[in-house]
């Protein structure tokens, strides 16, 4: 039974986060090159704005904002699942090289494929997911030891190694690109949120709507996986199979997200951690908070990147790394279990 106190705490934290998220979104949308003032923003939001504000909000800022929110949720959720499967509090799609795998696949696609601008947006998540899954399978394969099963420690080491190889591969191929293509990949690798049209939202949303509820549905088995292997096996669970399925699903989730926002790490690390620090490790409890935290962090990082320079922007991925890496190191310093 879930303690009703924890349940209440979850609801309180979620409501506070929702308010914070709304404030962050407001800050983000009202800043930028065209300064929209607060009252105009609120008016437009309820459908009473002027034509110009309406156009800017609905055609430019809203789709980008939605993509940022969805990507933050997806990355945070995917990190939570990967951490539970690997039983490693420091695992996440960026560290494990899964983002780099998606990037590599996208680079290969641009090199060999006929890029059709109409379908590009819809194909890209598929390509990225394929690259991510292949990378994850490689990691799984290499860290599988006969008799001993998966070694979570090796999984992380292999991921770091593969990540280096895959980014190296992408950089090598970039030499064959024209300037636009090279610029696109470079921006992608830095984690520049580049999807800013409604069609991107359409390409992205279905994945989220299918995968996230599925993961919530799986939260009980995630709880069991997160205990020790003996317990899970004695409860009749086919551990390696369940792990593999959940791994692939969480990889699809993060790969689809990075396809539209570029290679962004550390959200999947910070989101779940902050959430767990409020309500503990039970998946039903912390996953909703992790979703909101992930979205909040990415919106904040993106807005900082957009506003800190007088000319030009800093990609969200860089801001996230500057905030997230020290957090990661702090966590490492604290944990002695690895």
């Amino acid at each position: 039974m879930i303690d009703s106190k924890l349940k209440r705490k979850q609801i309180i934290v979620c409501s506070v986060l929702l308010v914070l998220l709304f404030l962050a979104v407001t800050w983000s949308i009202t800043s930028g090159e065209y300064k929209m003032d607060l009252s105009a923003y609120l008016k437009t939001l309820i459908g009473q704005g002027e034509f110009k504000d309406n156009l800017i909000l609905m055609e430019f800022r809203m789709p980008r904002m939605l993509i940022t929110l969805l990507a933050g949720m997806a990355l945070s959720m995917s990190g939570a699942i990967i951490q539970s499967i690997t039983k490693n509090p420091l695992a996440e799609s960026g560290i494990l090289g899964i983002n780099a795998g998606g990037g590599f696949a996208i680079t290969v696609f641009i090199v060999i494929g006929q890029v059709n601008p109409n379908t590009f947006i819809y194909v890209l998540p598929l390509i990225s997911a394929a690259g991510g899954i292949l990378t994850a399978l490689l990691i799984f394969l290499f860290s599988y030891n006969k008799g001993k099963g998966i070694s979570p420690a090796n999984m992380v080491l292999i991921g770091v190694g593969l990540s280096a190889a895959l980014s190296g591969g992408s950089i090598t191929m970039m030499r064959k690109f024209n300037e636009d293509q090279a610029e696109f990949i470079a921006a992608w690798m830095a984690g520049n949120i580049w999807g800013d049209e409604w069609s991107f939202v359409l390409a992205f949303l279905p994945w989220i709507l299918i995968i996230i509820p599925f993961l919530f549905f799986k939260s009980s088995s995630l709880n069991i996986i997160n205990t020790n292997d003996q317990t899970a096996k004695s409860l009749g669970m086919n551990l390696d199979k369940e792990r593999l399925i959940l791994l692939i699903i969480s990889v699809i989730l993060s790969s689809v997200a990075v396809a539209v926002v570029g290679s962004i790490g550390f959200i999947g690390l910070m989101g779940p951690h902050i959430a767990k620090s409020f309500v503990g490790p039970r998946h039903q409890l912390f996953m909703p908070i992790a979703l909101l935290t992930g979205a909040f962090l990415l919106v904040i990082a993106d807005t900082i990147g957009q506003t800190v320079l007088s000319i030009g922007t800093i990609p969200a991925g860089i801001v996230v790394a500057i905030i997230g890496a020290p957090y990661f190191l702090y966590l490492m310093y604290k944990t002695n279990s690895i």
Partner: peptide
């Protein structure tokens, strides 16, 4: 494992 993980995170930070 710790050394490589710390290395990956520090590299990510310094490169960013």
């Amino acid at each position: 494992v710790r050394l490589i993980l710390a290395g990956a995170a520090v590299s990510a930070l310094l490169s960013a």
